[in-house]
Every structure is written in structure tokens, then in C-alpha cells.
Write a protein that binds this DNA or RNA. Sequence first.
DNA 1: CGCAACCGGAGAAAGATCCTCCGAACGGCC
DNA 2: GGCCGTTCGGAGGATCTTTCTCCGGTTGCG
Lengths: 230, 230
Amino acid sequence: MSRHTVRLRADARRNREQVIAAAREVFLAQGVDAPLEEIARRAGVGIATLYRRFPDRRTLIREVSLDAMALAAAQLRAARAEEDDEWAALVRFFHAVLETRIGTVLPVLLGSLGMEFSPDDELWASRSQLVAELDELVRAAQRTGRLRADVGVGDVMLGLLKLLRPLPSMRLLGDFTDTLNRRHAELFIDGLRGPAVPRPVLAGPAITAEVVDRYLAEQQRTAPGRQDQP
Amino acid sequence: MSRHTVRLRADARRNREQVIAAAREVFLAQGVDAPLEEIARRAGVGIATLYRRFPDRRTLIREVSLDAMALAAAQLRAARAEEDDEWAALVRFFHAVLETRIGTVLPVLLGSLGMEFSPDDELWASRSQLVAELDELVRAAQRTGRLRADVGVGDVMLGLLKLLRPLPSMRLLGDFTDTLNRRHAELFIDGLRGPAVPRPVLAGPAITAEVVDRYLAEQQRTAPGRQDQP
DNA sequence: CGCAACCGGAGAAAGATCCTCCGAACGGCC
DNA sequence: GGCCGTTCGGAGGATCTTTCTCCGGTTGCG
């Protein structure tokens, strides 16, 4: 979106994007204190590359937040423009958050990220803008009666954020995580519906005790010792 | 519950309980790799006391899990005995999990804790027992139609666990956390209700953007620099 | 094809965490 | 009330983790 001070070489720009994407996931999973080496590893770049682009942690957090915020704003506007009504737009935004791992942005939205904003900061301004837009969407959806009236944007966003956050020591469940996230989001969304609004049936099989145990057995067979990297 | 090999002195037993309770909270918040000093600090005991009672991390995890499992089982049985129907029992169990910070037990339930169980382990046995009981309750509640049919015990427990887990860098919101947890649990529960079951109105004011901002301003005023300990 | 920009890993420095040792304090029993 | 054995808590060295820099080799671009 914004041109940077100097034009980066193609590979450098690609690496920069990958670092930001990796940081988004890692921050979401472990918080903003996560080791930077892990981020570099996930991005598939060396640690030096990360430091070259982002001199210290604060810078990285800031850039990641700005990026995620822009992504979220774009998704939100697309949803409003292309969906029929406000509730549909809200649900679509939720799914976008889920799929683009944008959740990192949400703590920023609510101001609870571990960094201080200076009040006139660019980041703070865009956060307030986004919160205002989301708040407006929530209220609009409530006016149509499809979103229950006794919640606010804080309830909605923080709940969603928690549901989408990976659990620690959940490696065992592996790629199962995505399925679970989707189901949890759907359940939460159903809890948000207005009182008399019909709800769809959840996709996929219910996660019963047998399903969990089958996965566990599978994982234990393929990875007997603890194994942190795939 | 179980008498230990040697009878501990009164203060020792009290400290042991406090360590387990503290570990339950810290494990829930930070995962089982959390620093042991933090647990000792929260328990109000010295680090040596912790090590004396639990020689290594594995032992502590094991004891905490067993304890939490026993608590959960007791709560579950009380709920089944004292509530009118299965759905009410399930909801009551959820609230008990919320209030007793028993969530630590849930990863164990689902086998995803970062330790290996030997198959004939006491812990594994009691985990399977509890999962079976929960699974049965879920199915029974579904038979009455008050719990939606397209979910399993895995959906329900993992979703709840995620909602109750504190967010990192959420210190700013402080004691607000409990309120949020309660509201999120209620919303999730409402998403679990059968299609045509009436739902209550959420207690307390909706968490709107203004509410969040008011809290943030408050926090910023009282704690301008970052401050990890209260 | 040449050069400037970029890359990645090794490794020193700083910091966090683990775990033991020992003098002081406390609980239980006579 | 007093004694004895158990328990307590903190200081501190060993160890592991994380940070961040330096430099030889590689690669995109004109």
C-alpha cells in the first residue's frame, strides 16, 4: 500500500512480507514476547534478515499491527460492500479474520497490546477508525434484529479472538486445529444470533470423544517422542 | 482425598494446596512451560518449598492434573445429582469450571498436554473416566433436545477452554477479565442450545467501544509505564 | 557481466530459569 | 511452656534461552 522510503529489491520485499505474515501467526499464538528466531524460522529466512528489516521488537510489532489493521479494514469494507445486510457482513468478516489469521490485530484494536501508543500515533488513529467502523456495523446489525441486542463490539471481538487463538501444547492435534477453530467460531456466531433467527447445521462430523482419541492415537503412532518441529 | 505416604505438617499441607492452586492458574494462563518461580510467588511460598514438594516439573504437572481432574469429577457429579435435567447439569458444570479455574484440566482431558502418558497410568485412567462421563452427559442432553445435535464433547470442552484462557498482554484490562469470561461463556452456551430453545438475556452492560476505552483510559492513568506486578 | 544489495548462520553477550544449600522459624507433642 | 524435628525462604552458581552483530558467500538488476 504505502511506498517505503527506498525501493527494496524483489527478494527483499518478498522476505519482508513473509516475516510479517509469520510474525502475525506467532504473535497470535504466543503473544508479542515470542522469540524472534521462531518468527524467522517460520518465515523461512535467517535471523539476520529479520533484524535488518526490523531493527528492534517494537518496530516489528508496529509494522505487523499496521499491516494487520489495513488487512482487517479492507476485509471489513469488502464485506459491507458485497453482502446483503449487516449481519451477513459481520459473519463474513469473522470468517475473513479466521482465514487470514488477522487475529493479531484484535488486541491492538482493544488497546491491550503491550506497547504504549502516543496518542497522535498513526497506529492509534487507524485503530480508532477501525473500532468505530466495527462498532457501527455491530449496532447496525442489532437494529435489523439478527444480532442480539445485549452485546457490544468488545464482547464480539474479544470472544472471537480467544476462540481463534491456538492452544499451547496442542501440537498433538496438529492440523485438526483449523477444523476446530471453524466449528468454534460457528458456535459462537450462533450464540450471537438474535433470539428467533434460524441457524444452520454445523458442517463436518461432531467432535466426539472417539474422534479425539482416534487423532491422539494417530499422532502418538507417528511421533512417539515429543517433537517440536515437523 | 488420597492420604499420602507420610502425614505432612499442617503448614506444609496448606502450602502444598496453595502451590497446586497457583499452578492451576498459571498453567491455564501460560501453559505448562511457565516459570516455576512465578507459581511459587503466586502461591506465596519460596521457590525451595515448591521444589521440596514437587521434585521436578513433571511431578508438579501430574499432581496438578490429578487434583484438577478430581475437582472436575466432583463438580460434574454434583451437577448431575442436583440439577433437574441434563442440559442444566451441563451448564452448571460450565460455570463451575469457570469459577474454580479448573480449565487446566481440559487439555489433559483431551490428551494434548505436553507429557507422555503411559497407557496404564493412574492419570490416564481417570482422564478416560471423566471424558466418558462428560460424553455421556453431552449425549443425554442432546436426547432431550436442549443441546444441539451436531456437536460432540470435544467441540464443547475445547471451545470452553479457549474462551476461559486469559489473553497474553491483556494485563491492561485487569479485573475486567472475569466479566468478559463470563459473558463469553454465556454466548458460547447460547450457541450450543437446541434450535428452538429460548435463551436468557446476558447480565451486565454490553461491552461497547466506549466501555473498553473508558477502561483503557483508567488503566493508562493509574499505570503510565508498563507494570507487570500489581 | 559486474556490482551493489541482500542473505544466512555462527557466536559472543545478556538475560531468564533452574535447582541446591543452609540458617532461621514454626508446629506438634509431652 | 518448652523441646525437637520438620519446614520455610532466599541467595547464588550452573545451565539453558534469547538477543543482536559481524562477515563470507550469493543473487537480483541494469
